[in-house]
Design a protein around this nucleic acid. Structure first.
Lengths: 338, 338
DNA sequence: GTGAAAGCGCTAACAT
DNA sequence: ATGTTAGCGCTTTCAC
């Protein structure tokens, strides 16, 4: 970018009649510089429009102020918002993210990590699901001493910094809402069970049901893959299995909306016949027909906190906690007013 | 990242008993190297796990293989998909994107551009709306010789590479669908008129109406800001203004969905009383109640093409065209089956 | 075919 | 308070 006739620190030094170091000191505010020299140098910098080269700095400082951002699915509201929060936080601390989108192909990840290593990123933020069957490359990264932070993930045995939402509590909140609405046959559409978040929401649901005196029945649990389509299909299957269903907890809003579509097609009214609660509070949730009750996750906060913990680790400040769980919140709308 | 005990080209050279240059030649495939030396060097590289430092390379080559990505709103499906496409294409060519999210605050952009300049990015992709009142910094960037590509944008007078969708055609498609469904009072909810895309969709709508023999009536046009909320409010206003409305074109799916919510609340059936067509084909469109007819934009392709043109410019290949328009496609669903 | 010298733009360590 | 020396890790002349 403007490399051709780029102004260097030497140009500034010459024009100001000082050495490069003095200019460097002025720029970095380190070491003593007399008021007058500083003024003069600053004036020349201004005049020449000098901007220090981050590349040269990175080389000599062994620090790039750049972080890797591994993402998988930009259509997932949760991770998208995490990214927004993380980017904002990183920027406040003078860091940039290098974007790496594995886009549903986890096999790309090791190669990305290699490229990030060549670029000497200071740390890596994983804003993607935890489905990685082969996480050796991540473990190896951590052992190399590269700071890593994950969201919605756990790595058994490794000391990985994790920021996540309390999904078990979220499951409880959802099921509780349906119970308070007087529902007695509460089905569930789960996310894929190899997702930790799905397993934890499931646990919360089960606990709430049992505390509410309802039997836990795996016959009214169906599996989805987070998509609208899968929620639609799962709902159709559930209705066939158990026509008396009067409540539904879907592990995300997309599946809940797909399920409501299926309910509409089968002539079931929401919430009169079947009350529905989702998870995420995506923007469209408030504008569904009927508006969707759901469990809101503080996604931006997850991103901000993840970035801060990562930067802390990069800068050598040991985080007080290795694992942080943020609290979700129940949002009551028409689809289940319990 | 592993800076501490990083293996350098010198380490490889020493261990292989050659000079650094020879190693460099092997890595870059430039210059003649004897078969045996090459083998030996390669073996040592493998053994030591050597990876060249991109930082050092960038410094000496005056090229970072890094691009800036200016984004504004991650909740906007259009731009999100553009980013996904652009990232995939960049990666194929060995480039990374540095993420810059101005997040609805365009005032941050000049500062971002300054930081990107310090990091000597090879070019900048603007994946954000065109609402910038002060585009001097962009113009100055272009004059500095930094390759720039925009999506959904025009910069009057500047020779900026632009990739976009044919929005006028999109407006025609939407209005045409409503006309074929036999609608005679077709209202519109537009995006903000300072968006070029909104103005062009508007033109397409107007042209289609006039060709269809319908009067063009600004009394049945309302303004939104792309959000669900604004579509909802605009629809309520339109119904008050013109209860006989029997068709609606909303400039994006979010506003269309907001409008359908308003219609439901006012006891209007979709499509029987009012047929609705949106724009974008966001994933939820197929799962609305009723499923939403809409105009699909090839967003990923926009991103891929934008990245390719940017990289072409960075590498000195002059693009054949400065402006590319991709074609949108009508998707017919229940909300308007014309 | 290979090596030596020079330098990218900057900062750190030691001078003065 | 300021300058000098020595690199960071790599590629690019230009020798041989």
């Amino acid at each position: 970018m403007g490399f051709a006739k780029r102004v260097t620190i030497q140009d500034v030094a010459s024009k100001a009649g000082v050495s490069r170091q003095t200019v460097s000191r002025v720029i970095n505010g380190k070491g003593e510089v007399s008021g007058r020299t500083r003024e003069r140098v600053l004036a020349v910098i201004q005049e020449l429009g000098y901007r220090p080269s981050e590349i040269a700095r990175s080389l000599v400082r062994h620090k790039t102020n750049t972080l890797g951002l591994i993402t998988a699915d930009f259509s997932d509201y949760f991770f998208t918002q995490v990214i927004v929060g993380a980017e904002a936080e990183a920027r406040r601390h003078g860091y940039f993210f290098l974007l790496c989108s594995t886009e549903r192909n986890p096999a790309d990840e090791p190669e990305y990590l290699r490229l990030l290593s060549e670029r000497q990123v200071d740390g890596v933020l994983f804003a993607r699901p935890s489905t990685e069957p082969d996480s050796r490359h991540l473990a190896s990264l951590i052992r190399q001493g590269v700071p890593c932070v994950c969201t919605a993930y756990r790595l058994p045995g490794e000391s990985l910094i994790v920021v996540d939402v309390d999904n078990e509590l979220g499951g409880r909140l959802a099921a509780g809402c349906l119970l308070r609405a007087g529902r007695r046959r509460i089905g569930m559409i789960t996310g894929p069970p190899h997702w930790l978040s799905a397993r934890n929401r499931w646990r919360g649901y089960r606990a709430a049901l049992e505390e509410g005196g309802l039997p836990y029945d795996e016959g009214i649990i169906a599996f989805g893959d987070w998509s609208y389509e899968s929620g639609y299909a799962a709902m159709k299957a559930l209705l066939e299995e158990e026509p008396a269903l009067d409540g539904l907890f879907a592990h995300n809003d997309c599946m809940a909306i797909g399920a409501m579509r299926a309910l509409a097609e089968c002539g079931r009214r929401v919430p009169d016949d079947v009350a529905v609660v989702g998870f995420d509070d995506i923007p469209v949730a408030a504008y569904c027909n009927p508006p969707l009750s759901t469990v809101r996750q503080p996604m931006r906060q997850v991103g901000e906190l993840a970035a801060r913990l990562l930067i802390d680790a990069v800068e050598g400040r040991n985080p007080e906690r290795k694992e942080v769980l943020l609290e979700p919140e129940l949002i009551v709308r028409q689809s289940c007013s319990g």
